[in-house]
Design a protein around this nucleic acid. Structure first.
Lengths: 149, 149
DNA sequence: TACATTTACATGTATATACAATTAATACAA
DNA sequence: TTGTATTAATTGTATATACATGTAAATGTA
């Protein structure tokens, strides 16, 4: 749906102004639709993001600050998200042997199991939510990558 | 910057999966950069969104639920945001004469003054943050509008 | 009219964001 | 080696999101 109809705004100053508003609105469109994906498994989208990062490590431990660097939202608080995941027994924390300031994080079997359960639903969701052809979605990805400079 | 480098993820399942992650990351890129715009004037990006909606009314009052419908994030709580703005004397609330359940909201002169002060900085920010040509930004807006179905 | 339903808004609670401050460990320089 | 600076993580606080619940007013129907 055209952004102008969606937020009932007749016009924008220029296409750059519209693009900023369009990106903010599109994120909200995705997040509000995806909430039902993760909720049945008792995790938030942000906690899912952390679990995906840990799974990508393939058994290698990763520090809290490295998780933070890889998160979609850099301002989120990896330390507190890890604590929530630990309480659910989806991750474990170990003191780093070479630097006692750091904390090594690892995903547990239970955490991996949740990701496996979610995998197909997430991919199906992605295709459903992005109403574009293969060619158009490649073009969108190109523009987004370029947009950020 | 390519998303793969930005979040240090080698590959995605398919371009639809990348597009979802790309949109979430791009929103975070915008929000984290724009925070310095509003902070000096003592308002949050969400409060700015509400003030812009009220300004668009050109003096006509608007109810809390209508503000909610026009917000970029539909799940945000217009009632509480209006309360924050009222405390700063940027809006006023009036009981709706025809329906006492409703509350009419109006922007104050002080609220309009803040928007005027921000106007040029916001438009300059929009151009700076979207690193695309005129043609490309139109294409991006077209794809985002289409993407949401 | 009386009572149930719906609507508009406010409020409560858990989670997350944004940013500052704190604590502990390491690195570095006088 | 001693003091300073830096780094990694945690903690504190204000704001916002997500969703459920509460309250009062309006609507609809028997």
């Amino acid at each position: 749906m055209k952004l102008e109809e969606a937020i009932k705004q007749k016009e924008f100053k220029d296409p750059f102004n519209k693009a900023v508003v369009n990106l903010l609105y599109s994120q909200s469109y995705i997040v509000s639709n995806q909430s039902c994906l993760f909720k049945p498994l008792g995790i938030s989208p942000e906690q899912y993001n952390v679990l995906r990062i840990l799974k990508g490590q393939k058994g290698q431990p990763i520090t809290v600050s490295s998780i933070q660097e890889r998160m979609l939202n850099r301002m989120s608080n990896a330390s507190r998200l890890v604590e929530k995941l630990k309480q659910k027994e989806l991750v474990i924390r170990e003191e780093c042997p070479t630097d006692r300031r750091q904390v090594d994080i690892l995903i547990t079997e239970k955490g991996l199991k949740i990701l496996t359960e979610l995998e197909e639903a997430v991919y199906a969701f992605n295709r459903k939510i992005i109403n574009l052809s293969e060619e158009e979605v490649d073009q969108l990805n190109f523009l987004l990558d370029k947009m950020r400079g």
